[in-house]
Design a binder for these strands. Sequence first.
DNA 1: AAAATGATCAAG
DNA 2: TTGATCATTTTA
Length: 206
Amino acid sequence: MNKLPREFYMRASLEVAPDLLGKYLIHVVDGKELVGKIVEVEAYMGPHDKAAHSYNNRRTERNEVMYGPGGYAYVYIIYGMYYCMNVITAKKDVPHGVLIRAVEPVKGIEEMARNRFKKDYNDLTKFQIKNLTNGPGKLCSAMGITRDNNGDDLLGDRLYIMEPEFNENFTIARSPRINIDYAEEARDYLWRFYIKGNMYVSKPHE
DNA sequence: AAAATGATCAAG
DNA sequence: TTGATCATTTTA
């Protein structure tokens, strides 16, 4: 188990996105590791992507992290109540990002249950278990990822991404991205990637 | 199907 | 300063 090296992130988000599938996202909270396997992502290709916050090199206080080098976390508030986490990729001044859309709980599932539903894991319904981390806002809630993590170095020791010890076999499926109907021609780009058949994918069919 | 809910951004 | 927007989730 090793952290993904800086070079991994210094590429276009469209290349990095599918490579993130199967990797382990880890957030250390109160000395405890919350671990989720990444099962669904979306690439946001910055300047040339009408769906991206950084389209046309738009640069604001919120998306400033996108303009730094790859391997940092970009966390923002969506719809006034939820958080979304991106992995920033490409070199400095090239504002690419990969939205983490879903993870599969691997470790710290008790804490995740508490964070999401304020209930013990053993008291969750089947529906709640399936809905722990199967969406971008849900996984942030479960793993305790907030605005405070914006700008975190993914090679640091608080929020980071590891290569699994053993590579598993899976099939990668792709589709248009979710909820970007405003993005004109970019609506149709197949820039969403997910592990086919995984129970924690937010929308298996698309 | 539609509400919840408020930070963010560009216009004025 | 303000009004519209929004890379979502929950409820009904």
